[in-house]
Amino acid sequence: MSYLKPGFSHPHHQQNNLGLYRKDYEGALSTLCAGCGHDSVSAAIVQACFEADVEPHRVAKLSGIGCSSKTPNYFLNHAHGFNSVHGRMPSVATGACMANRELIYVGVSGDGDTASIGMGQFAHVARRNLNMVYLVENNGCYGLTKGQDSATTDMGSVSKAGRASPFESIDLVALALQLGATYVARGFSGDKEQLVPLIRGALAHRGFAFIDIISPCVTFNNNPGSTKGYEYVREHMQAVGQADFIPVREEVTASYEPGCSVEVALHDGSVCLNKIDPELDISDRASALRLLDSYKERGEILTGLLHVDRDSEDLHDTLETADRPLRDLSEQDLCPGQVALDSINQSCR
């Protein structure tokens, strides 16, 4: 088995504006099963960061436990990383983000890590609108422990073990919408044309950007009867709109039919949605929730960018934290002296 990637690249590969090649955003060779959707998500993250001219050393990769949570090792190997405790990635992300607001936080979690053991943490990081990208690599099973049903396994979905799931599933997108996430999308690991712009949009968004990515477990949940296999998802997925990420410096040249495209300006670029479902108002949570329900009733999987609140206040805004990373605060900043203390005391009298 190969354990190293060859050092060669295509001789005509392109540089981004930082002078980096896509290869510079890659990580170690994956040890996940061959064909795992998670590897495609890693590749999409690599592509999005490359296209967005993200400096790898300005990224912190955070994860919990599970197949999904192994993947930060497989992209951006020049970034910071923290592989935390099962379901506790949001706490670590919150601490890190509060301490240093200048990094880009990319959390990678799975359906077990988010919808089961980590549900409590997920709920709070979403409602606090922490400035991070939160990706769930959702395969509807516990792949690392041989494929038991997870909390996102659809009712009636049959895993490799051959038994239909008897329980109602948790829809993480609906949950994120209800909990106040300010950028909510669903993607599919097998559709990078959609996924890469979604990740770019999430990187550009200030606030809690959540993407539920259906990422088939090729070993335990890619069989007939499963609702999270490649074939089923391809057949049943409906994109709410075709998303394109348009960096600020690029002129919009594509012409879209009036009335069926929406441009969402993010603070360093915009996501342009075209051929959008007329039922969806991208700024209205309720319309997204209604759409989710109606697609679900039809047995279809709704994908794409569903909601953006681009004027959102992130946790730093809400808490009025220092505008610099804590590490940059001097002793003078932290211990402003007797006069300052006196004035605080005075204000409490």
Binding site: S30, G35, D39, S42, G190, K192, P216, Y230, E231
Partner: peptide
């Protein structure tokens, strides 16, 4: 099955 694994690697 068009999983993209070969493309990615």
């Amino acid at each position: 099955i068009e999983c993209d694994a070969c493309i990615d690697i």
